[in-house]
Design a protein around this nucleic acid. Structure first.
Length: 430
RNA sequence: CGGGGCGUGGCGCAGCCUGGUAGCGCGCUUGUUUUGGGUACAAGAGGCCCCCGGUUCGAAUCCGGGCGCCCCGACCA
């Protein structure tokens, strides 16, 4: 992308509505614009991040055999009357009426809908288990939206649902989801910790929240240092992984157990703050019973499938990652989800030597590069590159360019290398 | 939902108390300058002062109502 042509409206000053770092930086770096309280438009750079996160989420869901579907944002109130939640959900549910006065709602979640779909189409135990998921916009009419995308009303969420024959199957599914989630967060490039959680409004017996560590997180977290070095990508057995995750100490402040904490060797104790970016639930037959979803078993008897649901806040993750990874100058994107891998800074736009070298670099990197080809001062380009936080900056000035040299800056560490152009390219691509 | 605050050019703000027809910084346009960390100078463009109503000779300013947005708390993926 050529910055001179891109819709990436960066801001030198912080709009007054933004208080916390991620919100400020998302606005300043031109990722989003607010359209109404808690409702945001995603601009090209922001959308690229959102898409990259969704892609990783999708790959890890597919890996464990989940199947992607896409359910609508608008749902019928009747569906929710079946489970009894239409009345129970309260004002957070945005209720709307169509021209025929039919009651509709903008879905805050999809348990009812997916249960109806599976119920209407799955009749035999032979067709279980099923694990559909989708990545779709949701709406919860929060009393008080805040923190930008971290607590918006409209948000992008991956929500998955599982239907198993029995508890053992459901528990196995639950464990494989936990592993998939930890793999997902690790691939994104952040440290996430699963914590035992309350089941809240959704109801059920077994639930974990996933918190990523960020100094500005809304809840205090206590955990064993083992989580800092855990390797979900290397784990192969969901049972063993689950065992390890749930026996290593981790708790949010409201669940913190001082006596258990006292057992942890001091050098392994870690305290910090966390932002919840996902939650998983096992809730048994709550919805299958309420919505009369029964299938015929091998013995010819009807039974209710065992269910669970599993969410990842995709749009919230964007904000959460920035909370975890930024400095005074701007965002520091993890490589896997950075909108572009590298920025090319042409320090003297219009100079034949720098123009030529920059064009070569841009051609070589293609879609992975954001080329700052604007007529701007070097200082402005540096400042904006740091703000936007791409992992690498290829800095091309007239002196270096004459010798085929560029300066490669690593955003996360601030390291700079004077390198021949092809070596710099190799490093960026590595 | 309780409490507080704000709404003036694209962004950040002053002006409002003590009514007299709108200003500053940044950004934008043009030119010169500068050329490796948001350069300097000059000349420009750009405003239904959130909306509606009232008071007044006159309202950004005072009064009433409405809308929007933010912050703290309770609540939440």
């Amino acid at each position: 992308m050529r910055l001179s042509k891109a819709l990436i409206p960066t801001l030198k000053e912080t709009p007054s509505e933004a208080q916390i770092a991620s919100h400020r930086l998302m606005l300043r770096a031109g990722l989003i614009r607010q359209m109404a309280s808690g409702i945001y438009a995603w601009l090209p750079a922001g959308l690229r991040v959102l898409t990259k996160i969704a892609d990783i989420v999708r790959e890890e869901q597919d890996r464990i055999g989940a199947q992607e579907v896409l359910m609508p944002t608008i749902q019928s109130a009747d569906l929710w009357r079946e489970s009894g939640r239409y009345e129970a959900y309260g004002k957070e549910m945005l209720r709307i009426t169509d021209r025929h006065d039919r009651e509709l709602l903008y879905g805050p979640t999809n348990e009812e809908m997916i249960t109806a779909i599976v119920r209407d189409n799955i009749k035999s135990y032979r067709d279980l288990p099923q694990m559909p998921y989708h990545i779709q916009w949701k709406f919860r009419d929060e009393v008080r939206p805040r923190f930008g995308v971290l607590r918006g009303r409209e948000f992008l969420m991956k929500d998955g649902y599982s239907f198993d024959l029995d508890f053992d199957g459901a528990f196995r599914t639950y464990k494989s989801i936990m592993l998939a989630y930890m793999r997902t967060f690790q691939r994104i490039g952040i440290t996430a910790i699963p914590m035992r959680a309350d089941t809240g409004a959704i109801g059920g017996d077994l639930s974990h929240e996933f918190h990523i560590l960020a100094p500005t997180g809304e809840s205090g977290v206590f955990f064993d240092a083992a989580f800092e070095t855990g390797d979900a990508l290397g784990a192969t057995d969901p049972d063993a992984f689950y065992e390890q995750m749930t026996t290593t100490y981790a708790a949010t402040d409201e669940k913190h157990d001082e006596s258990a904490w006292a057992q942890i060797p001091p050098e392994r104790k870690r305290e910090g703050r966390g932002i919840e970016v996902g939650q998983i639930f096992y809730f048994g037959t709550k919805y299958s019973k309420a919505m009369n979803f029964a299938v015929t078993g091998a013995d010819g008897q009807k039974f209710y499938p065992e269910m669970g649901s599993y969410g990842i806040g995709v749009s919230r993750l964007v904000g959460a990652i920035i909370e975890a990874r930024h400095d005074e100058a701007g965002i520091i994107w993890p490589q896997a989800i950075a909108p572009w891998r590298a920025a090319i800074l042409n320090l003297r736009q219009g100079d034949a030597t720098t123009d030529t070298l920059c064009e070569q670099l841009y051609q070589a990197l293609g879609a992975d590069a954001l080329y700052d080809d604007r007529e701007e001062r070097a200082g402005a380009k540096f400042a904006e590159a740091d703000l936007m936080g791409l992992p690498w900056q290829l800095i091309v000035g007239p002196k270096g360019a004459a010798k085929g040299m560029v300066e490669l800056k690593h955003r996360a560490t601030g390291e700079r290398f004077e390198l021949p152009a092809d070596e710099a390219l190799a490093k960026v691509r590595a």
